[in-house]
């Protein structure tokens, strides 16, 4: 796997683990419920053009589990502090799934340091009658099959034999996700009414066969956020960065380059 640096920053007495690679304009990648197991090819390819910063959210992955993380709001305030403390400006903020929800909560509070916002299969709102799938009630096999359009990818994921450390992190991420998103399931009822505050170029990317958060949500976000562009990725499930890496990279970099600010 290509290179990134790994480090930990201190925040309110706890450690936040982050991976960072590449150079250029900062691109802050906020991971989804499953976390970031490694510096995967999609991060590496983004780092060809940007200074990619990919933290493990506090309570996830290799980050500590501080008591102050109770709601997605808490992570939004954390990332606003993080951006300020790291001196980041003109940030391309990319959030996937749960990370998309966090990105939205950041952006409705302040877009001061953002150049653009990219949402990939984002959680955070609810369309009545179109719930997201219940990640928690699925067993491992059901989850793998729901995540990908391609059965072969699901098989590949199921065939992996994670180490004990990796299993611990999977479990930790599941608990961390439940803490934030068990009730209401994967959304904040108050978020929708503030989405009009988002005043940076916004790009909504969705797999056209997403079985976790239905593709209808792409159009819903597109309508709620003024001027948002929507890109549907064909033959793709909930994780375009994994399932359709080329199309994902093209979509993200194409949009971010046009809005380099």
């Amino acid at each position: 796997m290509a290179s990134c640096s790994e480090s930990a920053i201190d925040y309110k007495g706890g450690k936040v683990f982050l991976r960072r690679g590449g150079s250029g304009q900062p691109l802050l990648f906020l991971h989804g419920a499953g976390g970031i197991p490694a510096w995967l090819p999609y991060l590496d390819r983004l780092s060809d053009r940007y200074d990619v910063i990919a933290p493990d959210h506090p309570t996830f992955g290799q980050s500590d589990e501080p008591g102050w993380v109770e709601k997605v709001d808490d992570l939004a305030y954390f990332y606003l502090d993080f951006i300020k403390e790291q001196g980041l400006e003109n940030v391309h903020l990319v959030g996937q799934s749960l990370g998309g929800w966090i990105a939205l909560e950041i952006a409705v509070r302040s877009t001061h340091s953002l150049a653009s916002l990219t949402l990939v299969g984002a959680a955070g709102i609810r369309i009545k009658g179109r719930p997201a799938a219940d990640l928690f009630i699925m067993d491992d096999e059901e989850l793998a099959r729901a995540l990908f359009k391609s059965d072969a990818l699901a098989e590949q994921m199921l065939a992996m034999e994670p180490t004990e450390e990796q299993q611990d992190i999977v479990l930790k991420n599941k608990v961390a996700t439940a803490r934030l998103a068990w009730q209401p399931r994967l959304f904040n009822p108050a978020l929708r009414k503030w989405l009009h505050r988002i005043d940076v170029p916004t790009h909504v990317i969705w797999g056209d066969s997403d079985r976790i958060i239905p593709p209808d949500y792409a159009g819903e976000f597109g309508g709620l956020i003024e001027g948002a562009e929507v890109t549907m990725i064909e033959d793709c499930g909930h994780l375009p960065n994994i399932e359709r890496t080329d199309a994902f990279i093209d979509a993200v970099t194409g949009f971010c380059d046009r809005h380099a600010a």
Partner: peptide
Amino acid sequence: PFEVLFPPG
């Protein structure tokens, strides 16, 4: 099922 008996956390 295991997942229902032991929800995360």
